[in-house]
């Protein structure tokens, strides 16, 4: 998902405190920043919320790519609003992570030097306008499936950030589907573009949920702590089951020859994405990985003087106000 392969940290805390903590979680208590928490819980959450935040921020880049080339003023305004929302989501999440004792600058630096990751999906290029449709429809659709249950996560600030995010996310998916509807009802070339976008983004979207639970060694602890609510395979299945009829409605074909309704399980059987590609992308070898981090680095470097100037200006204003008193 937006946070993939989050390694849970081993915890070496007082067993009595740990038991009390687990009891609070099991009872559905929210853990707040000043409450006692195991070191592993804190570190795992910083990594998870940080990666989630980075994904929102880096996720602006593939869509920002099309703002100046949107096909109409209305589409441009909508895409701009959507990308601005992603910035907002990143900010809510950074603030939630900061309550755990990490600074905003540290989080940014960890993204830039590769100590922290962002979702694999944003390492893929957006080649045509139809990709704006497919990203909203598939990527935001997948994100919603993961984020809705996270509103019930045990860490208060994270849960509250997710509530705000989920309120806004539905607009994102619907604007994407709306673009797809327009494309498939357009010219033959436009419909081909829509199919091509689905072909390219289908498997990367399936990868968003992370590898199979059988291989996710960190899921168990995170689930006990309620910072992960559903299994990866469970959410991926749900995503496929909800998306296939939508693709049928659009008259598009999911690029999977093994896709087949399975009456017994009440869901579709489908092909897994190429997991070696996923691990490679996570390592920073995705088609756009270098470009994405370069863009973030450039924004960080070029913004340095603004960050400094604002502080200098604020100090000057404070001094002038003091002098006037």
């Amino acid at each position: 998902m937006y946070a993939q392969m989050i390694k849970s940290e081993a915890t070496q805390d007082d067993p009595v405190k740990l038991a009390v903590f687990q009891k609070r979680i099991d009872a559905g208590d929210k853990i707040e920043p000043k409450d006692w928490m195991p070191e592993g819980y804190r570190k795992t959450l910083i990594r998870q919320i940080g990666q989630h935040a980075h994904s929102e921020i880096v996720g602006q880049l593939p869509e920002g790519n099309w703002i100046t080339r949107a096909p109409s003023l209305e589409r441009k305004a909508i895409l701009l609003a959507k990308v601005q929302d992603e910035a907002g989501h990143g900010l809510y999440l950074y603030c939630a992570a900061e309550t755990l004792g990490v600074s905003r600058d540290e989080l940014t630096e960890m993204l830039l030097d590769g100590r922290m990751k962002y979702s694999s999906i944003f390492a893929y290029p957006t080649l045509t306008w139809a990709d704006m449709g497919a990203v909203g429809w598939l990527v935001d659709g997948a994100a919603i499936l993961n984020q809705v249950p996270l509103q019930r996560t045990s860490f208060g600030p994270y849960a509250r950030a997710m509530v705000r995010i989920c309120k806004e996310e539905s607009f994102h998916q619907r604007q994407g589907f709306d673009i797809m509807m327009k494309m498939v009802n357009g010219t033959a070339a436009q419909k081909r573009m829509a199919q091509d976008a689905l072909d390219r983004l289908w498997y990367p979207s399936l990868m968003m949920f992370g590898p199979s639970d059988a291989e996710s060694v960190h899921s168990e602890q995170s689930m006990a702590w309620k910072i992960k609510i559903n299994g990866n395979d469970e959410l991926r299945q749900k995503f496929v089951d909800q998306t296939v009829p939508q693709a049928e409605y659009l008259g598009l074909t999911i690029p999977d020859e093994h896709l087949k309704w399975n009456e017994d399980k009440g869901g579709y059987d489908f092909s897994q994405p190429d997991w070696s590609e996923f691990f490679d992308v996570l390592k920073g070898n995705g088609p756009c990985s270098t470009e994405r981090i370069e863009a973030r680095q450039k924004a960080w470097d070029n913004g340095a003087w603004v960050r400094e100037a604002r502080m200098a200006h604020a100090a000057k204003k404070r001094a002038a106000k003091l002098a006037a008193e």
Binding site: L91, C95, E98, R160, R310, H313, A314
Partner: peptide, 8 residues
């Protein structure tokens, strides 16, 4: 509703 960073 939440928090944010600002110079003043």
């Amino acid at each position: 509703v939440g928090s944010l960073h600002a110079s003043d």
